[in-house]
Computed example of a mutant assay.
Amino acid sequence: MTNTNISVQINGEPFNCSEPISLHFLLSYLDLSSERVAIELNNSLLPASLLSSTYLSDQDKLEIITIVGGG
């Protein structure tokens, strides 16, 4: 059985995982709510409806922007 090591950048920081994971799983792992973030994947804004079906690939670049309400 072969391990697939995936190296990505999240907000400029390295992140490694041993198998492909969905962006929905990643947000859960990072304890972030998918309703309160915007995600840019490889310089393209990703619709929230695609978080469960989009998987990380080696060398992907993610920017996760947390939306904070205030008054």
Rank of each mutant, 00 (worst) to 15 (best):
Q59P: 06
S52L: 01
L51G: 02
L50G: 06
S33Y: 06
S7F: 08
S7W: 05
Q9T: 11
D58P: 04
N16L: 12
V37H: 05
S18H: 14
F25E: 11
I64C: 10
L56N: 08
V68F: 06
T54G: 03
S53Y: 02
S18V: 08
P20A: 15
S7M: 07
N11G: 11
L51A: 01
I21R: 04
D31F: 11
S49K: 14
V68E: 01
Y55C: 04
K61D: 14
L23T: 00
L56A: 04
I39S: 01
E40D: 12
N5G: 00
L50A: 12
N11C: 05
M1I: 00
N42G: 08
L50Q: 14
I39D: 02
H24E: 14
I21E: 08
L23E: 03
T66S: 12
G71R: 12
D31L: 12
N11P: 02
N11F: 02
G69Y: 00
S33H: 06
I67E: 03
H24S: 15
K61M: 14
S18N: 15
G69S: 15
N42Y: 07
F25S: 14
I10K: 09
M1W: 02
N42C: 09
L23K: 05
N42I: 04
L26R: 11
E19S: 15
G71D: 01
S18D: 15
Y55S: 10
R36W: 02
V37C: 08
I67N: 13
I65P: 02
S52T: 07
T2V: 10
P20Q: 15
D31H: 15
N3G: 07
A38F: 01
Y29F: 14
G71Y: 02
I67L: 15
I65T: 11
S33K: 08
K61Y: 09
T54P: 04
L30Q: 12
H24K: 15
N5C: 07
F25V: 07
S28M: 11
S57I: 05
A48F: 06
N42V: 09
L51R: 05
V68D: 07
L27Q: 05
I21S: 09
D60K: 05
R36T: 08
F15W: 11
Q59H: 15
L41S: 00
L30W: 03
F25R: 14
I39K: 01
L46D: 01
L50P: 04
L41H: 08
T2H: 10
D60P: 09
V37R: 09
L41N: 01
L51Q: 03
E40R: 10
Y29T: 13
E63D: 10
S53D: 13
P20S: 13
I39R: 01
N16A: 11
L50V: 00
S57Y: 05
Y29P: 04
N16K: 09
L41A: 05
C17H: 13
I21F: 03
N42S: 09
A38I: 12
E63G: 07
D60C: 08
V8P: 02
D60M: 07
R36A: 11
G70H: 09
V8E: 01
V37Y: 06
V37M: 00
V8S: 00
G70I: 05
E19M: 13
R36H: 12
I67K: 12
P47Y: 02
I39V: 09
T2I: 07
G70D: 04
